[in-house]
Amino acid sequence: MDFILEYYFDFSILSDVDGWSRILDGFWITLKLSILSGILALTWGLILAMLRQLPGKAFAPVRFLTIAYIDIFRGIPLLLVLFLVSGSLLAFQSEGIIPTALGLPRFLGESEGFWWGVISLTLTYGAYMAEVYRAGIEAVPEGQSEAARSVGMSHRQAMRHIIVPQAVRKVIPPLLNDFIALMKDTSLVSVLATLEVVQVGRDIQSETFNGTGLVLGALLFLAVTIPLARWIDYMIRREQRKTQRGGAPAKPPTGLAGA
């Protein structure tokens, strides 16, 4: 029992190897990875969802390609995407397809592994989030788009002003769920020599034969994910209360419309 406590909760050992600041630095990278990829994935997912909704025969190839993209990136492991993405630029540059002068991505003082991580997380989570947005768009009643079109709005205007704002409101909770999953998956970027919090915890573990660094990392994750999860629950409950009250005072009956 003592051994268990010592192995997981010996915070004094962290001081010996500068563990506190190393873990915090690592978690700062985790946070930056999460927030940057999260914002990009939210945007990319919305773009994919819109492409998938384009009407008419002319856009059939766009719809097909979008669906193929979503199926592929939802269907392969993020780890595999990370290896594919991180290896590809070097390969393309050595073949001369991409000029070497462009160099490796090292924007804003972050490592290349960091940026490969951002790209991979965005590609993969964009696909997940596109599906969430789509569910939201399909949950907006058909009457809304009919009403929008009957005041003369084009498909694009109706999407932008009427459908998407309502759809996004409906899917904020599932989007945040995906964000929590994304945040946890940033730990995979450690395979690209990025010193995010899990990698730092492992380093400390092998230096000290003690798991407390990893436990501290876990606590930092929970400090973000548990409040987020509570907040999501609160939003869902609030939405349920609203719909159970009946929403509008005079709720119209359904199924009366003539053919």
Binding site: P141, G143, A147, G152, M153, S154, P252, A257
Partner: peptide, 23 residues
């Protein structure tokens, strides 16, 4: 296309279920 939107502008429509924009 645009002619379509032009027509819909000249024809006002009111629905059984109101279809107001709730947001």
């Amino acid at each position: 296309g645009e002619d379509l939107d032009f027509v819909r502008r000249r024809v006002g429509m009111v629905f059984q279920q109101f279809n107001l924009f709730p947001h």
